[in-house]
Design a protein around this nucleic acid. Structure first.
Lengths: 339, 339
DNA sequence: GTGAAAGCGCTAACAT
DNA sequence: ATGTTAGCGCTTTCAC
């Protein structure tokens, strides 16, 4: 087995307390004995046990991160942001991918509790409906600081950083309107997704502001998957009164939309204008210029991590904080100007 | 603070040992007392400490996973595969993204050692050159089972599962040859990447087998980034004796290649045939049919995890195992038939 | 400056 | 079927 603090102490003819002191650079220890101890540590390939330290100090210096889907680049960026700040503060990350599965999310929370991690950053998978009782009870009584990353949990009141999806939806729609479009379809996420609801609201707000009547035949509910967006897009293209523009309000759904357009041999933007939501790197790389609303995922990651650290440094302050983040409209020319 | 096993024992008027027994379903305990204890655990919101358990049992049931770049879908899939098997065996995962940074990789190894994790799955970032001495020493003396996931480490001898990149390169090149191409360019990864070397070797082997002389002007060294692949592709397109096909041997590099072709208004495959390496989901989704060599990333993940579990279950057996995995050529029509 | 000793929360012989 | 007890490897208060 590996050497323990006891072995080091014996070999150096000092007490374990002294070894512990040099380990943590705490308290006084004569330079000479310090050097001796360090030398012996090296010789014996000593590696301190974080487990024992955690048990002793009641601090694990580890946080849990729970996301619905790692492979979605939005969360990849989010994690990168979290990771960057965490590393700066010597915090480790235990990561859980729930695969959009609420039960896995609950399970993850339970594991993290047992692991005695210091805090949790969570993007919940069940944002609205599904009033899973066990889940809410767990979340509200978990006794570990939680910060939400761009995902609300109904019936609970937690700190977090949230992207302004209403503004994002508004901006995208407004951009199309300003190009002269009036027949604008939206493919939105499922009704129990709050971001989806908000993006839709932004869409409606923009239309109202510009006095364009809302045509409910132009509002399509998808499920964030490209397949359904593809089917819906085909449906849109078959319309008698075909829209001139489509706001495909997620990075996956815009792909389904593009696929449908390709199949119908329709060009972007000559034959159909489109705007997406969230960046799709590959499209930009290959030079396919699709305008989109950019959600600051990396920044959200950094901010939530900073918020969590502040909470950890300031345990007594139980106040709930909420940070709003604005989206950024990136126009690449996939919206045709009709004026 | 949270309740401990001691609190439960006192409240239930039993010893801590008995509580521990119901906790682990081990040994005998009367149904009646068991129920009483469970009830009290529930009332007191008892959550056992994995930390204390780990210290006591010298088992953390946690493994470390180190990858060079989470956002690359290849590693996303890999992690999914690992995760799936790990969950089945109640193993937790601590994830490290080294961002292709060798120092971070070394740091990750050190943290994992201190965390007393049971084993490591590693895709090293520094496959060939950079004979970082500290790193090798660490790797060879770490005292924790390591399984490599499709990445070799020179001067070390570790178990792992590896994709047959030679065959992948061969298959791609052969497919082009069989379509009648003779002037085939390859954009390969950096010379210190073993997979890149192997893919190149496959390319050469195929040419030789079909008696096509190797033209070293057609071999281009990139760095796995799309930008350089883009620059190289433009260079290729400017050639007097322009190749009729390009084998862009990674998922990022094929994008740079496509970008260049788009800029030159060249159609695939009418004006240029291309084959990539590793799948790019987005391309398939939007209906852009690019042929590619598919590396079984998900399967690699599952296999390495299973290998690691076997090692953990069988500590005395120190034999080094190596599993080879074949690639799969997926033809989508981006190679024009000249015959 | 350094040591002794108790304790963090749990497990696992060994007793009974 | 249950209790006793000695650890696991480290920190930390209080003495000296």
């Amino acid at each position: 087995m590996t050497a323990t603090i006891k072995d080091i102490a014996q070999a150096a003819c000092v007490s374990r307390a002294t070894v512990s002191r040099v380990l943590n650079n705490s308290g006084y220890v004569k330079e000479e004995t310090k050097q001796k101890i360090l030398k012996i540590m090296d010789e014996l390939d000593y590696i301190p046990s974080d487990i024992a330290k955690s048990l002793s100090t009641s601090k694990t210096n580890t946080i849990g991160v729970i996301v619905p889907e790692i492979s979605n680049p939005f969360f990849g960026e989010l994690i990168k942001g979290i990771s960057e700040i965490a590393t700066q503060h010597d915090l480790n990350i235990i990561l859980f991918d729930t695969n959009n599965n609420g039960d896995k999310e609950l399970k993850a929370l339970e594991i993290l509790q047992k692991q005695r991690i210091q805090g949790i950053i969570l993007t919940p998978t069940m944002t609205e409906s599904k009033k899973n009782y066990d889940y809410l009870v767990k979340l509200n009584n978990i006794g570990i600081p939680i910060v939400l990353a761009d995902g609300h949990v109904k019936y609970s009141n937690l700190s977090g950083a949230f992207i302004d999806h209403v503004k994002g939806g508004y901006d995208a729609t407004e951009a199309l309107i300003k190009c002269g479009h009036e027949k604008i379809a939206i493919i939105t996420g499922s009704t129990n997704s709050r971001p989806a609801q908000e993006r839709l609201k932004g869409y409606k707000n923009a239309l109202q502001f510009y006095n364009i009547p809302i045509n409910y035949d132009y509002i399509f509910y998808s499920d964030y998957e490209y397949e359904s967006a593809y089917e819906i897009s085909k449906q849109i293209l078959e319309y008698n009164d075909r829209p001139t523009a489509i706001f495909a309000s997620s990075n996956t759904m815009v792909l389904g939309c593009i696929k449908a357009l390709n199949e119908y041999k329709l060009r972007i933007p000559e034959d159909m204008s489109i705007i997406g939501f969230d960046k799709v790197d590959v499209l930009n790389i290959i030079g396919m210029n699709i305008s989109f609303v950019d959600g600051p995922s990396l920044e959200v990651g950094k901010i939530v991590m900073k918020m969590l650290i502040e909470i950890l440094d300031n345990k007594d302050n139980k106040e709930i904080k909420t940070v709003g983040l604005s989206t950024n409209l990136v126009l690449k020319g996939s919206e045709k100007c009709l004026l």
